[in-house]
Computed example of a mutant assay.
Amino acid sequence: MQLLRTYLNDFVSLLFPRLCPACNASLVAGEKIICTDCRYNLPFTNFQEQADNIVARQFWGKLNIESAYALYYFNKGGKVQNLVHHLKYKDMPQIGNVLGEISGMQLKSHPIIAHTDLVIPVPLHKKRLKERGYNQSAHFAEGIASVLGCGVETGNLVRKVATETQTHKSRFARFKNMQEVFEVKFPDRLAGKHLLLVDDIITTGSTLEACGAALLKIPGLKLSIATIAYAE
């Protein structure tokens, strides 16, 4: 029976090959979502080894965070962009879980982030969530939390306003666009906690800054930040 199942799986793979969303190569037996070559050779930032990395510096003087991290560098037209595109627009939320697990493995020995109490994803507006069917950042959060052994908090930090796209806006325009967008519904549940706020890509940091500003109103809260990619 096991041999027959193997033959059937091989036959199905011939007709409908599983492809790596980063490089489009066929996945072989044992490879999960992302091929082995991409798992080891995508452009890692190694920000977990740099306390004053580029992402952390973006928040200096703006947001009182404990630490900041991004898994990959994002280059236009590159493999990381392919991954994020499939995660957000090709109904592949499981990519977020896998990237979260990879991040978690890097962060489990981090002197600060390893001691996270809760991982909290940047929320989508309910209209966008209905259109997409899932929040890609929530899946990234689940992957990290599964390795760090902490919880995930969704539905507490909410996006009150469906903002315009940020893609072609200046930093100041992005900041104005995000003012008063986010709200914490149950702040008492987060008081005194160390939160890891996560998103898919950080560019200017305006969205994360707005989320962080809402969260840091809570007494005793400590905040760190992690993203899938940093876009230079």
Score class of each variant (00 low, 15 high):
1 M>A: 15
4 L>Y: 08
9 N>G: 15
10 D>Q: 15
11 F>T: 14
12 V>I: 10
13 S>P: 01
14 L>H: 07
22 A>H: 10
23 C>K: 08
23 C>H: 11
25 A>E: 09
25 A>I: 06
30 G>Y: 08
33 I>E: 07
38 C>W: 10
54 I>L: 15
62 K>L: 13
62 K>W: 08
64 N>W: 11
69 Y>M: 03
70 A>P: 03
71 L>W: 03
72 Y>M: 06
74 F>T: 00
90 K>S: 14
103 S>Q: 01
106 Q>A: 11
110 H>A: 05
110 H>S: 04
112 I>R: 11
115 H>D: 12
116 T>I: 04
119 V>F: 03
124 L>S: 11
128 R>N: 06
129 L>Y: 14
130 K>Y: 05
134 Y>T: 10
138 A>D: 05
143 G>D: 06
147 V>D: 00
148 L>H: 02
149 G>C: 07
156 N>A: 01
157 L>C: 13
163 T>Y: 05
168 H>S: 14
168 H>C: 10
169 K>D: 03
170 S>D: 07
172 F>G: 02
173 A>L: 11
178 M>K: 06
181 V>W: 06
183 E>F: 12
186 F>E: 15
187 P>H: 12
188 D>W: 03
188 D>Y: 01
190 L>F: 04
191 A>C: 09
192 G>P: 11
192 G>N: 04
193 K>I: 01
194 H>F: 03
201 I>A: 02
204 T>Q: 02
206 S>E: 02
212 G>T: 00
214 A>V: 00
218 I>M: 06
218 I>W: 05
222 K>N: 15
224 S>T: 13
227 T>S: 07
229 A>S: 08
231 A>C: 15
